[in-house]
Design a protein around this nucleic acid. Structure first.
Length: 495
RNA sequence: GCUCCGGUGGUGUAGCCCGGUCAAACAUCCAGGCCUUUCGAGCCUGUGCCCCGGGUUCAAAUCCCGGCCGGAGCACCA
């Protein structure tokens, strides 16, 4: 008897604990992480501005750094001036967006400015016989690799390799003629890791360091060395770099270094954008399909900011996604839902009438000033003049023509171009969803909404005071007021 | 083809390591209801899930084997 009761007691206790822990959505503990000793990095190639995809890396690494009082490094892996050419402006954009998202990098590193450091390590590897110069053509090498056969250059003497290396540094070879490879095992079960390329010649000037260098490390090499130099303790990145770890571990083994803890998350596919890569966006901007990198229809961080998405929403969105290794299809609706929670509480309400239709209220006994709630936090009100000639949306006009509708907070009428006034009282008009928004003719500003759902119409006077803020256009959507000199320009944030 | 990873309601996540109050939780979406703080908002209600087949076990979402499906890597890209 007593046992049973004790059991029940324990169970109820257990339940409570479970619910509490589930209520707060947070990241799982980081393996082997010690408070104050964590060093993490976010390492993009700035070949465009940060996108929603980059934001995941920024947020996850940043969040862990915050919880463990860690060091947060922003490192530009910009070692290919040709194929993945960095964009000069994008360096600044990354710093800006990382900060906007709420993280302050403790250090910013530019790989392209530290190339000689990588040369030193390359030389050491050659000296211990773990790297060699390879003159194979790509196809030739691929053939050797796929069949697990060492290429003819693999067993070149150290001295000869060093000599070639010196000549590479002097630029005595042409692009594609020779590369430096890291020795792994030609019989490695995964062909992807077999004797990978660590350095190659690229004579295209670099956007940041010009023609200071022409012998560039590959990402795998640069990143391996940098993570060691920065004392990185945890590497958190996308699954696409999974093999990178396998390759880099060889270097760590040769130098007898300890490899950081790594976690790889799965690919994120935003259903609304599909396969919108940075390079594709670039092409479409050039083709005039988008205005620029901050076009509100784009999934770049700057575009989201411009359209009124808050950093907090982006943070919560990615924290909720977590570290799952499965590839996911998420909708922007999830991000919008987070944003809505934040913005809904503070956004001022206004009437925006899209595609206005002018109607005249026949039999209106008097003009009337009506008070309408403006803000749920401050309990502020706005005042509209209920007058004879008003605007309503074309959509409502067509839907309710001939029927009884109520102009919100104003009056009831039978809707038509010449509408028949019925009364001011709310009662008697409340049949289903026939309460619509409206605007007095005497005080309506022209307003253009741009973004996903662009349209033109009229808006209440008073919105101009909310320049730069997100407001809610009632029965329409949340919008950010971008311009307010003359015609109002609002960007659609989300529903 | 080779290598690796994954598969929990429509979508995403938690649970899986250490089998048992898990006829499975949270969020979003969808449907319906309420509301002149409107709505595509908010509040309330509802539909809906452990990929399949075997095995181990008193007991499997959880462990094992096989299959199926999805993804990533296999670049002198990052």
């Amino acid at each position: 008897m007593l046992d049973e009761e004790q059991k029940k007691e324990l169970i109820s206790k257990y339940y409570v604990e479970k619910k509490v822990s589930e209520r707060e959505i947070s990241l799982p503990p980081l393996p082997k992480a010690e408070k104050g000793k964590v060093v993490m990095r976010f390492a993009p190639n700035p070949n465009g501005p940060p996108t929603l995809g980059s934001a995941r890396g920024i947020v996850i690494n940043g969040e862990y750094c915050n919880t463990y009082d860690g060091k947060y490094i922003l490192r530009f892996d910009d070692t290919d001036p040709k194929t993945k050419r960095p964009m000069l402006e994008a360096y600044e954009w990354y710093i800006e967006d990382v900060e906007w998202l709420g993280y302050k990098p403790d250090e910013v590193i530019y790989a392209s400015k530290r190339i000689p450091i990588y040369y030193d390590y390359a030389k050491k590897l050659i000296e211990i016989g773990k790297a060699y110069a390879c003159f194979c053509k790509r196809e030739e090498f691929k053939n050797y690799r796929d069949n697990g056969i060492p290429c003819p250059h693999r067993d070149t003497e150290v001295e000869d390799n060093l000599e070639v290396w010196e000549k590479m540094l002097e630029g005595r070879y042409s692009e594609g003629e020779v590369v430096l490879r890291i020795k792994t095992e030609m019989s490695h079960r995964d062909p992807a890791v077999r004797d990978w390329v660590a350095f190659r010649l690229i004579y295209t000037p670099h956007p940041l360091v010009g023609d200071s260098y022409f012998l560039y490390p590959t990402l795998d090499f640069e990143s391996a060395i940098e993570d060691r130099l920065c004392k990185t303790t945890h590497i958190l990145r996308g699954k696409d770099l999974r093999d990178s770890e396998l390759r880099q571990r060889y270097i760590y083994e040769y130098f007898n270094w300890e490899y950081p803890v790594t976690i790889h998350w799965g690919r994120v596919n935003i259903v609304e954008f599909g396969k919108l890569s940075t390079s594709l966006i670039k092409r479409e901007i050039e083709a005039g399909k988008f205005e620029g990198w901050d076009d509100p229809r784009l999934p770049t961080v700057r575009a989201l900011r411009r359209r009124g998405i808050e950093a907090e929403a982006i943070r919560k969105f990615f924290i909720a996604l977590g570290l799952s290794e499965s590839e996911v299809n998420v909708s922007m609706k999830n991000l919008f839902a987070e944003n809505r929670k934040i913005v809904d509480a503070k956004a001022n309400r206004f009437f925006f009438v899209a595609n206005p239709v002018e109607i005249e209220i026949e039999g209106l006994p008097e003009e009337k000033l009506v008070e309408i709630p403006k803000n749920q936090n401050t309990k502020e009100k706005r005042i509209l003049k209920g007058e004879k000639v008003v605007y309503i949306t074309k959509e409502d006009f067509e839907k309710f023509k001939g029927e009884v509708v109520r102009l919100k907070d104003f009056c009831n009428l039978i809707l038509d171009k010449k509408a028949k006034f019925l009364g001011f009282e709310l009662t008697g008009a409340k049949k289903g969803k026939n309460i619509i928004h409206w605007l007095p003719k005497s005080s309506a500003l022209r307003c253009k909404v741009i973004g996903e759902r662009s349209c033109e119409g009229l808006v209440e006077k008073g919105v101009e005071e909310d320049l730069g803020k997100v407001v809610q256009f009632e029965r329409f959507a949340f919008c950010k007021i971008e311009k307010a000199n003359g015609e109002i320009v609002a960007i659609l944030t989300h529903d």
